[in-house]
Design a protein around this nucleic acid. Structure first.
Lengths: 180, 180
DNA sequence: TATTGTTATACTCTATAACTATA
DNA sequence: TATAGTTATAGAGTATAACAATA
């Protein structure tokens, strides 16, 4: 990587090969650290046979047992058919149970099984260890400070508590250029 | 959502339907805000016809012009064939140029075109607006504080400056419980 | 024979839409 | 006819591996 290029390569293009290219802002760091955190968390819950989406589902069902798949899909911002797949998997693992609603037999009321609750407990321990590792660089005061700042940002950005955008399909750049 | 369920549905499962389900930690917020930030950034650069991965490539090429695709793949943690696709797209848009290396003609040296540099300038403006929106809840002092905390975390976690984990495939949980 | 880049193939994931059963 | 859930199909994205050119 030196500069001994023969006359076949015109000196043409490169003007300022250094700065301006490495993003240094907090927004980039948030995205970078966020993706890193999500990946590490995925590894950890992977040990339990779960994906992060599974965990999200378990938490939502635990928080409001008996809700329907449709309601769940709405809250998560995903399409109902995806909930079918996710619940299939959780039911197959014996963590979630579908119960036909007696009021409206089209509905499935979702509940955790006993093992589902145990698993959710294990997830909580994984999450605690994860947080501790992720923030190893910060002392308790700094962690509190970070939490405070992040909560301000999340609130102002109107992020739904407990709902991870990763559950729904990333909005790919809507398509290059034209308006809808 | 009332509690008039007939005897067909045993009161069985749900014990503590409330807390324990909504994650409140900084790690979750980092992942949530990070995904949100990435999504919003994707929208913005989508206006320029670019994906976030495109932007990352442009930045790396700008930072070190002339590098080979293989080196790029290594630094990004992606497979070389993916770099082919990405560069194809950028070259098709006239932003990047492949030049046969005179030293080793197997190599392609990558360079930005003049338009590529202009586009990167536009990206920087998008990024600045993005950051400003994302951190609208914080005053300048708080933003500096956040940046400081995030940098500590990124350093301790050994995150490569400028390299977004989203460029490479998320490590799916290596196995989902049972060996298939 | 080893290495750079490319192409071809297969796999995974997810949304769309058709379908069923209840209402 | 409308709605909850399911199933079937198709599309996007990406890794794996075979391949061509150069060393």
């Amino acid at each position: 990587m030196s500069d001994r290029q023969p006359d076949t390569t015109p000196p043409a293009s490169d003007p300022a090969p250094g700065p301006a290219s490495a993003p240094r802002g907090a927004a980039f760091l948030l995205a970078q650290i966020g993706a890193h955190a999500a990946g590490r968390f995925a590894e950890r819950v992977g040990d339990l046979g779960l994906t992060p989406a599974d965990v999200g589902l378990l938490r939502m069902i635990a928080g409001r047992p008996g809700r329907s798949q449709r309601a769940l899909a709405e809250d998560l911002g995903v399409v109902p058919s995806r909930v079918v797949t996710l619940i299939d998997s959780l039911e197959g693992k014996g963590l979630v149970e579908r119960r036909r609603s007696a009021e409206d037999r089209r509905n499935h009321e979702l509940h955790l099984t006993a093992e589902g609750r145990r698993t959710l407990g294990a997830v909580s321990r994984k999450a605690a260890a994860h947080e501790d590792d992720l923030l190893a660089a910060l002392d308790p005061a700094q962690r509190a400070q970070l939490l405070d700042l992040l909560e301000r940002v999340a609130t102002q950005q109107e992020l739904t508590p407990g709902v991870h955008p990763g559950y729904r399909t990333l909005q790919k750049s809507p398509r290059s250029g034209r308006p809808e």
